[in-house]
Design a protein around this nucleic acid. Sequence first.
DNA 1: ATGGCTTCATAGTGAAGA
Length: 252
Amino acid sequence: MRIATWNVNSLKVRLEQVQKWLAENQPDILCLQETKTEDANFPMLEFQQAGYQVVFSGQKTYNGVAIISKHAVTDVQYGLPNFEDLQKRMIAATIDGMRIVCVYIPNGESIDSDKYKYKLAWLAALQAWLKDELQHYPKLALLGDYNIAPEDRDVHDPVAWAGKVLVSEPERAVFSGLQQLGLRDAYRLFEQPEKSYSWWDYRMMGFRRNHGLRIDHILISETVSCTASSIDKAPRKLERPSDHTPVWAEVF
DNA sequence: ATGGCTTCATAGTGAAGA
């Protein structure tokens, strides 16, 4: 089963790119973040006509997550049950015997901001909830925009980024904590090119200069097998791209 | 260098992203 994640930075703007990517790559499951679309306006038919089911949790302007699936979707969970949140950042469902958790983890702005505190609180709730969720669903995949670059090799300029949001020690500690729950970074299970990133700044020709970060991840539990994982840079080269590009993994 | 781009929003000295 091919599973994937993509922060599309507005589904309305990127719908055609997503449809094309689905047709060309045929994933079984695609998790989307930053749909920026209210549920009433979600383009459900467009995906259904392509043979996909969709579940989504969105809002106007910001955030918003969705799971697009070729297979039956059951037991949908909207938002973290242990964290009151007006921001639509999590949706989970069971698909083909696997618990699929789609997250848009808060950005955090800067380490001295209230948004950073919110990010760490959100992450603590996610970690606590996942520990419990893994008891109920040993076969689990956590896909999304984590807004965390777990290691220096995931950062184009680790010296410039040192200590900043997205790479700070408390954020990386949570990423390690998730790994201690038995979750493995699918991408790092395989030999990968150096300087591999999933996001590049729109400004200053970030993509062309490969000034990026690897902040979109697929973590899989111990009972999930994985045969391949990669970052597909092709959509980032398109006209009017998202600043993130899809990450996928082949699992069973 | 708090800029630089992009989106959604409103008509802001904009907000937020990463």
